[in-house]
Design a protein around this nucleic acid. Structure first.
Lengths: 198, 198, 198, 198
DNA sequence: AATGAATGAGTTTTCATTCAT
DNA sequence: AATGAATGAAAACTCATTCAT
């Protein structure tokens, strides 16, 4: 007998992702501790018990969101490596801003909810984040070595640049006055100048 | 005539501040929603009910911590205004970093727990924060007008600088390798270059 | 087609009514404010949290009991209207006493706990009560017009009769010396004489 | 040394009565269980602890209010006994209505809060109430014996009359259309007719 | 006589999670 | 895959009462 076509009522292949989408949105808005499993379930349109067909517990849900985000970010950043340090830095700045704005909720949760991860999950996310930030650090280190950049401290500069770029998400609004491109231009200007001398 | 000594059994002048101190520390570590009134009370050494001799509810406790911090910051920043734009910018950078590091918990809570303020308290804190950030914006605006600084967008630059400076708190550890002074020097260097041309 | 049997483990069709029954009994004995949700739950044989599968809050529980009682009373009184004013009055007196004694807890709660209703629920219950009392008032008004009754004030007499009849519940005990019928006879005698002349 | 004149600040002789007045008013409006000692204290203008200089506990406060009311009622009713049964009954009806309206809060509390008395206090209040109601019963019994009244059941008639008269308090408003005298007249008419024949 | 601080037990309500169906 | 009923623990907050001063 052929496998039956999926009936309209079978949502098993769709409920899982919808849970994560709802959870992400709600946690970004209200915070992990302030969002209940019932709220997430209601947003999806199921009862709370149904969530547990897709995840073992609330903690794992949070960890999944954060890990998935970091992995997606790392995947997307895989193409960034080529070119001169200056070019690579510019690419990184543009890339980071675009990613941040395209995934504002993911980014927000990934920064705000670290405290709510248990030790294991925290370690996993930290490792991924460090891997990502190491990409910028590598660019700066190579550029410092070849004289492109002048840095007092590579590690600190890495963090300073990341912090500055992350700041965009606190004020940028889709459909506001500024296009993504103008924001990228402005921040690239700030970053470029801060790591070079004259 | 000297003020009469407080009655011996009265702890009112000691329990109140201890509640706020404990709350600040616990909220900074675990998040507002994740900290219970019982935990705070236990930290102070009283029963949960006793907290309500000092505050009407949990929300007000959070608002007080954040408002007090912003007011203290504004008070402390009152002396910053004199001198050339360049000097004023350097003073601001040094001041901001020092304040942030001296009041790491306050700063952390003030940024992380905005979501947990009700509408009124949020408005109050926002207003105070804007007043503070306007100080930096004023410096940049004056310096841009007189040619000291070259800025694509004063408002965005303000935010970018604040974001970069706030980043210090995510990694600086007292007693680590770096002194406050070296951190101030490094960040001042980054900021100065990012707002000038050559 | 017959309705499908409820799933075996589901107690929803049994717990809901049991909650209301327990609440009614406990509130009648101890008063709404003095009865805790835990007590009600214990009486039903579940944990307090389970109550909230059946009602949104304690206030609503009280309102439901009172509204349901008034609606049942109105439903049951629908058949009362026919006949002469004298006959209708006698029917009403008999009906009211019987209802009151059959639903002693409901009646008691409906009178004693009005203070504990919020404004909306109070208005609803008041409206229902007025609708019920209007039935007696109508009987008296018609009888006064056609000379059956002689009343100083229809409205006041309505209230006086209701008050007198309600008094039965304060002393009547099932299985006591008096049958329902003798009580009805005695009160009918008192009421009849009080509204007629000679 | 002579006793010092009471200083203006000494309220000891006035706080006690004020507590009972406040308690009576608040309990009449909200119910005993719903009124907190803090509310009563706030109404008086002291802290909750101060109440315990005047009463041992909340239960005793309630009992005092109810006992005092019943005793006052009994005292005031001491003059009622003379005359024919018909005259005595009329006097009782007039007296009861006037007392009820002059002491609406006391009466309301005395009826509504019986459930909240502990066993001992309940017994005391019951005894007093029975003593009071026995006065009416005596009038009816004497009048039944001498042919003034025709009663199916003296005890039940007593309760029916009391219940009817108590009903006045549920609707009478000071300054409304009706004077005390007209109310007394109307109810006396109802009562008289209900206990006589023709 | 009154305060203000505190307690310990209580309140209503919410929550993550389980599980039979 | 989903429900609905339930649990047990916990949440924020209130309360009557005590007591040193």
């Amino acid at each position: 007998m052929l496998p039956m076509a999926r009936t309209a009522g079978s949502h098993s292949d769709i409920t899982g992702p919808r849970i994560e989408k709802a959870a992400l949105r709600l946690i970004a808005r209200h915070g992990f501790a302030a969002v209940s499993m019932r709220q997430i379930a209601a947003d999806v349109g199921v009862q709370a018990g149904a969530l547990y067909n897709y995840l073992p517990d609330k903690q794992t849900l949070l960890a999944r969101l954060m890990v998935r985000h970091m992995e997606d970010l790392l995947d997307a950043s895989a193409d960034l490596s080529a070119g001169s340090p200056m070019q690579r830095l510019q690419d990184f700045v543009h890339f980071h801003i675009e990613q941040n704005l395209n995934r504002a909720d993911e980014v927000f949760v990934a920064y705000m909810e670290l405290r709510n991860l248990n030790a294991d999950n925290f370690a996993t996310v930290e490792r991924l984040r460090n891997t990502y930030e190491a990409k910028l650090e590598d660019i700066l280190a190579v550029g410092a070595r070849d004289g492109t950049f002048t840095l007092a401290d590579t590690k600190i500069t890495t963090r300073a640049v990341i912090a500055m770029l992350n700041g965009v998400n606190t004020w940028f609004r889709d459909g506001g006055e500024l296009s993504l491109e103008s924001v990228q231009k402005i921040y690239w200007d700030l970053v470029r100048k801060s790591v070079t001398v004259f």
